[in-house]
Design a protein around this nucleic acid. Structure first.
Length: 98
DNA sequence: TCCTTGACTAGGG
DNA sequence: GCCCTAGCCAAGG
């Protein structure tokens, strides 16, 4: 199977770690920057990885975080200066370009 | 090996 | 701008 390599995972971690406080990135952005096959793979890594990375800065392309984490993530983001509007983050303003 | 699940995305109605 | 559908990929049972 075309399993993900440790190198790919490390790249994703690096990208997430370099997202500055007050900015966010989409799954698609991370996937593309890391050279992954699809955005779903990034979601899979985030779900399985238990590191202390700022995963809360990664949101969907709709500007809305995953439903089960929405409340917590939006709260953390707000603490970093990312103001969500009606549960949605204005990507146009906070999206981080790699 | 097949089928299901999931922290996704783009497109059409 | 929201809802539904199809395409997408890796892992676990």
């Amino acid at each position: 199977m075309a399993a993900i390599t440790d190198e790919q995972v490390e790249t994703v971690r690096g990208l997430v770690a370099r997202i500055p406080s007050g900015s966010v990135a989409t799954y698609g952005d991370i996937a593309e920057a890391a050279g992954l096959s699809s955005a779903r793979t990034v979601g899979w890594i985030m779900r399985t990885d238990s590191s202390d990375l700022p995963w809360h800065r990664v949101i969907s392309a709709s500007g809305r975080p995953a439903a089960h984490l929405a409340t917590r993530q939006l709260e953390r983001l707000r603490a970093e200066g990312v103001l969500a509007v009606d549960g949605r983050v204005p990507l146009r303003e906070y999206r981080h370009a790699f």
